[in-house]
């Protein structure tokens, strides 16, 4: 049974890119422990042969034709940007490459 230590919450929060205060880590560890315990019973309900459903209403082959439509004007695209320069979104320095 997984235990939600504050370390585990911190690891997952880092993966989710969310800074948490120590008090939040503490509280979330307790809450998530309870929630995970409640939801993990899904695995007892199903067998290996049960197919997974990812779309409630099955559809297939939904395409659009390769046709260009006008772009959003660049000034509209940039209007909400916290910062921009030379028609581009300005973001803080990026460390490392993915």
């Amino acid at each position: 049974m997984p235990t939600f230590s504050t370390d585990e919450v911190a690891r997952v929060a880092a993966l989710a890119r969310i800074d948490l205060e120590p008090a939040e880590l503490e509280r979330l560890a307790g809450e998530l422990e309870v929630i995970v315990h409640a939801v993990e019973r899904v695995s007892e309900a199903v067998g290996d042969d049960t197919p997974a459903t990812s779309h409630p209403i099955p559809l297939a082959n939904v395409f659009r034709e390769d046709v260009v439509e006008p772009s959003l004007p660049a000034q509209d695209a940039l209007a909400a940007a916290p910062a921009s320069e030379d028609g581009r979104f300005l973001v803080p320095q990026i460390l490392g490459e993915d």
């Binding site: 939904v62 659009r64 772009s71 959003l72 660049a74 695209a77 028609g87 581009r88």
Partner: peptide
Amino acid sequence: EPNSLVSPVSLGLPGALPVVNRTA
């Protein structure tokens, strides 16, 4: 020109949804 070939989808704006290009 930068950011002149964009839509809510390719900018990842909230609410936008993808539809697959058949030719691709």
